[in-house]
Design a protein around this nucleic acid. Structure first.
Length: 464
RNA sequence: GGUGGGUUGGCCGAGAGGCGAGGCAACGGACUGCAAAUCCGUGUACACGGGUUCAAAUCCCGUACCCACCUCCA
């Protein structure tokens, strides 16, 4: 069975055929570290994390590159506003981003290159473009270098647009461009910008344009031809279109497959920094766990819009808890076989919704066996295997970091001791068939926010 | 103006010509001293109008509404 993926460039689901047998090179545009990450950002990371896990599961040796854009207009502007060095802001936000990834069990990529560490590679690429007649230094002496859109006949192929149909850039300031759609490869340093935010180049001090970063870094770590390029749909144009044009104009083949994940919207609108309707990861994690949030995202298909709501999030969390509770009661920790239907769903363009349906079916079957007192090891093992692929296994060590600290464990032990005393009393009352007293004790415990459950092995408690 | 995507039951969310994915909620039943959990059962959903077909939520034509990209954006 081969993996099939929807390729945005050809607009169809195609068999995944890697450039090199048994290997997969994956490049995903990471974030510009200018502010706290929100749930929308993390959706992209979670989606590609699932892709990576599935490719590995299918036996591919994956090289996964996710970059960090740590220099750009917004970073400079925000840092100036906050009165601190731009690299200080970028680093602080990078730390926040890492925390968010860790909280959602997003595995670190193979390499995580930062733009500022690859300026020489970018300059080299720009020089090559100039030599080949696809780029030119600005004619106004600003020190900018632009990509010449008209010199590249297939410009617009990724997003199926004709250059003449595009609305000219609204920034209006042509700054020595031959065509308003030409985009900056290199930005000459402006007086107002800090010296530290510029690097020497053949065109004077300056800093790289956004698009060239990804071309340079993808080329360095994956080669100028690689398998899959991913990112959010909003990056299709201009960012991905430009990346592809640059690398191809410089002689590379670039990505064989393009994958784009859809939005998370709130109140019908895209969640974005500019609209100011973002939900930061820490705020959402006050309500649900990282595993629950990840499960919510993974239960929808990556190409579908998700209208974020706390109601839907709670529903997903409730469903997830059912799965977790099955695993708890099964008491089986070994990972078993992945059901064929689950694998088939995953092979079909990462069909996580159908895969999750298989997960629930298996849980139901497992609960049935459990009730019948039969062997559940196969079902529980399958559930574990599926949760592993989706990156939401409750026993995953990733959750431990965010979970119980030593202090919390001591607190749990203390509560347990107190509740255990009450439960002993209640057990005695039940043995005496004094139901009124038994229920009164249970109500009292419940009033403290603790749910009591009777099982054949005696009562247990959990925080409700 | 150009380019994409969407509209599915109380809610979330799959599917893409032919047995109503799955989840959450609700209701009934089993189990339980009563609960909880779990299991079993219960729904005639596919924006609207035409058309193609033995058969359409799925294909075609048209209409309405929503969203995104073309400017920094996962």
């Amino acid at each position: 069975m081969t993996i099939r993926l929807y390729d945005t460039a050809t607009r169809e689901v195609r068999d995944f055929v890697p450039l090199r047998e048994g290997r997969a090179g994956l490049y995903v545009c990471g974030l510009t570290v200018q502010s706290e990450p929100h749930v929308g950002h993390v959706r992209s990371a979670v989606n590609f994390d699932v892709l990576q896990r599935w490719l590995r599961h299918r036996g591919y040796e994956v090289t996964f590159i996710r970059n960090i854009t740590d220099i750009d207009d917004k970073i400079l502007a925000k840092a100036a506003d906050q009165g601190r060095p731009w690299y200080n802001l970028a680093y602080a936000m990078k730390i926040e981003l890492d925390k968010a990834y860790a909280a959602l069990n997003v595995a670190p990529p193979t390499y995580e290159p930062a733009a500022t560490g690859h300026v020489p590679e970018m300059i080299e690429l720009i020089e090559r473009l100039i030599e080949r007649g696809h780029a030119y230094p600005a004619e106004d002496g600003s020190g900018d270098v632009y990509f010449d859109v008209r010199s590249w006949p297939t410009y617009g192929e990724l997003t199926h647009q004709g250059v003449d149909d595009m609305e000219p850039a609204a920034d209006a300031d042509p700054r020595g461009k031959r065509d308003p759609r030409d985009f900056a490869l290199w930005k000459g340093r402006k007086e107002s910008e800090p010296e530290t935010a510029s690097w020497p180049s053949p065109w004077g001090r300056g800093r790289p344009g956004w698009h060239i970063e990804c071309s340079a870094m993808a080329g360095k770590y994956l080669g100028e031809a690689f398998d899959i390029h991913g990112g959010g749909v909003d990056l299709r144009f201009p960012h991905h279109e430009n990346e592809q044009a640059q690398t191809r104009a410089a002689g590379g083949a670039f990505a064989s497959y393009w994958m784009h994940n859809a939005w998370i919207t709130t109140a019908g609108e895209k969640m974005s920094k500019s609209l100011g309707n973002t939900l930061s990861i820490p705020s959402v994690l006050q309500r649900v766990t990282g595993a629950e949030l990840r499960f919510y995202m993974v239960a929808a298909h990556y190409r579908s819009h998700v209208e974020f709501s706390f109601e839907a999030l709670d529903e997903a969390a409730a469903g997830y808890q059912r799965i977790v509770s099955f695993l708890d009661r099964a008491g089986v920790t070994e990972t078993g076989e992945l059901p064929d239907a689950f694998a088939a769903a995953m092979d079909d363009d990462l069909g996580t919704p159908a895969a999750v349906a298989v997960l629930y079916d298996t849980v139901r079957e497992g609960n049935r066996l459990l009730a019948a007192g039969e062997d559940v090891s196969a079902a529980a093992g399958a559930v574990s295997a599926m949760l592993d692929v989706l990156g939401v296994h409750p026993a995953d060590r990733a959750w431990a970091g965010a979970g119980a600290s030593g202090a919390e464990e001591r607190l749990t032990a203390a509560v347990d001791a107190l509740v255990a005393g009450l439960l002993d009393e209640r057990t005695q009352a039940r043995a005496d068939q004094d139901w009124a007293r038994a229920d009164a004790i249970r109500d009292r415990i419940k009033a403290a926010g603790i749910e009591v459950t009777d099982t054949p092995d005696g009562p247990t408690w959990s925080v409700s």
